[in-house]
Structures are given as C-alpha cells and as structure tokens.
Simulated scan of single mutants.
Amino acid sequence: MKLTPIGIFDSGYGGLTVMRDIVDELPQYDYLYLGDNARSPYGSRSFETIYNYTLECVKYLFSQNCHLVILACNTASAKALRTIQQKDLPEIDLKRRVLGVIRPTAEVIGEHSKTGHVGVLGTNGTVNSESYVMEIRNQFPDLEVYQEACPMWVPLVENKEYDSKGADYFIKQHIDRILSQSEQIDTLLLACTHYPLLIKKIKQFTPDDITILSQGKIVAQSLADYLERHPEIAEMCSTGGNRQFLTTDSTDDFDEHANFFWGNEITSKFIEL
C-alpha cells in the first residue's frame, strides 16, 4: 500500500515549527515536508514568482501521493494560496486540497484581544499583501489591525543569531514601531514561522500585558478540526506515523538548521524540481 502523507510546504526551514505542532496534535498521520531552500527566502519576491514557486512545490507533493498539502509559509499563503485553490486545483484534481496558515489564525485572533486592537509582525511579502488585514476583518469586522514588516528577523534566525545580543536592536526596533501605532494594541501575532525562535527576545521588549501569539498550535488545532469535518479527506491520509523531509538545496545545511526548528535531529533528502 502506497503512503499518502500529508504534505507540508515551506520556503525553507520555518515551516518545521508548524509541522512540529501538527505532529504533536495528530501524530498518527504520515507527513512529507518540502523546504524550497534553494530559492529561499520568498519574503521579498514578487507575487508572480512566489505563486510559480509555490505551485511547482505543491505539484511535486501531489506527485508524491499527497492528497492534502499545508502551506506552512505565510508568504506563500498570502500570495499563492487563493489562486492555487481557485484556478489550479480544479484543473489538477478536485479531490486534492491545499490549505494555508493565515485563515486559521485570523479566525481566532479576535478572541485573544480585549481592546480590539491587534498587531501583525511578518515579512515584507506578507505585510504588503494585506492578507492578514483582509482575513481578520472578514472574521472580526470591528477589529483594528496594525502591521509591521520585520525584514531582518528571518536572517537573524537562519544565521543562528536569534538569542544573541546583536539581535536586540532589530527586535526592539520593530516591537517599538508597531506598538507606537496604537497604545491600545494588546495582542501581537507572529505571522512568520521563523519568529517563534525569537520569542525570548520578543518577550524581553514587549510589555507583559500584551499577548503574543504563535501560529503552530492554532494551525494544528484547525487542521484537526478540518479532518474531523472532512472524513473523506482524512481517509485518504495514511496513518503510519512516518515523517520524511525533503529540500531543494544542501541536505547537510538543511539538517543542521532543522535541528533548531524541529527540535530533534533529522535526515533530509535532496530533490530537484
């Protein structure tokens, strides 16, 4: 019997933080992770480029018997998900599904805010897309949403400077900027899968009365709910508890970095798209 794993895609390593929470929530399923490290980062690229890269990776995961693919990348979710769902899936296979990380987060963020003022911290691509603003307002029309792009945060993480003193300036700079937009902000969303590794520094420069939300557990619970509501999709996903990791770049580099994101040692496989 062929494995039909749940595919998880990210432009690099960051999606491993989401996958970690998904596996904790749903350990019975098989998972196939694909990191497009050769073309990372996606955050500063154009809509068209990100769409093309993301679609190529989704199609690859489909070719590996994944019937369900999660875009763990915020930038890909912001710039490619809707087009893939509406334009490409009907042409590829109506039984396949591609889900993102933005909507699950938008559906619950309002429940964490008492003032009705929330901040979103993300990459340039995610912030410029306005995807979080639109999705959050669809769910909570009265919520005020503020955004701040943090272009240096991903390089800090990927260069293992996330807990260094050198990171302090860039973390404090963007926290101060977003909080200066409104004194009523009481909730900050980390809208990038790299950012949980900066949580110690982020908390250091954020007032204690502000809630900081990471996406992993939110997305994991949303996926569990989705599979419960769609048993026809759940039945297509194999349940052997296997985890496989693919990268479009150096496996040695991926495995070294993945230890920080995943929490355990892994062995990846190189693939060429």
Rank of each mutant, 00 (worst) to 15 (best):
I84H: 01
E158A: 10
Y51E: 03
S113L: 04
D88Y: 03
T17D: 11
M152E: 15
F47T: 10
G241R: 01
D249V: 07
G119Q: 05
R39L: 12
N159L: 13
G166C: 10
L81D: 00
L34K: 01
L246A: 05
E48D: 14
T49P: 13
C192E: 14
N259L: 15
Q184H: 13
A78K: 03
I233P: 02
P196Y: 04
V120L: 02
V154C: 14
L26C: 06
Q184Y: 08
I50T: 04
Q86E: 14
T251N: 01
Q85R: 09
P27I: 02
E107W: 01
D24I: 05
S268P: 02
P5N: 08
R20E: 02
L189T: 04
L213S: 10
V58D: 06
F260I: 09
I50C: 04
L3S: 14
T193Q: 13
T4V: 10
S113M: 06
E25D: 09
G119P: 03
K165E: 15
D168F: 04
D163H: 13
G7A: 09
L179K: 11
L227W: 01
K172H: 12
Y132K: 03
I233Y: 04
Y29D: 13
H230E: 15
T187M: 12
V145H: 12
P231H: 04
A76K: 01
E183F: 08
L99R: 04
G100H: 03
I6M: 14
H257Y: 06
G263A: 12
Q85T: 06
D252I: 04
T123P: 13
H112R: 10
R103W: 02
A78H: 03
K2L: 09
L16V: 08
P231V: 07
F9D: 11
T17H: 06
K165L: 13
K79Y: 02
S129H: 00
Q85Y: 01
W153E: 12
G166V: 08
Y226W: 07
S113W: 00
K172G: 12
C66R: 02
L3P: 06
I8P: 11
L156P: 15
F254M: 02
G122N: 04
L68M: 05
L32I: 09
V58E: 08
I102C: 05
Y162H: 15
P41Q: 08
I218F: 00
F260C: 10
I6P: 12
S222M: 05
E265M: 14
L121T: 07
D209C: 13
Y42N: 08
L81Q: 00
A234I: 03
L32D: 07
L16T: 09
Q221H: 14
N74L: 00
L26H: 04
K2W: 00
D176Y: 08
I50W: 00
R39H: 12
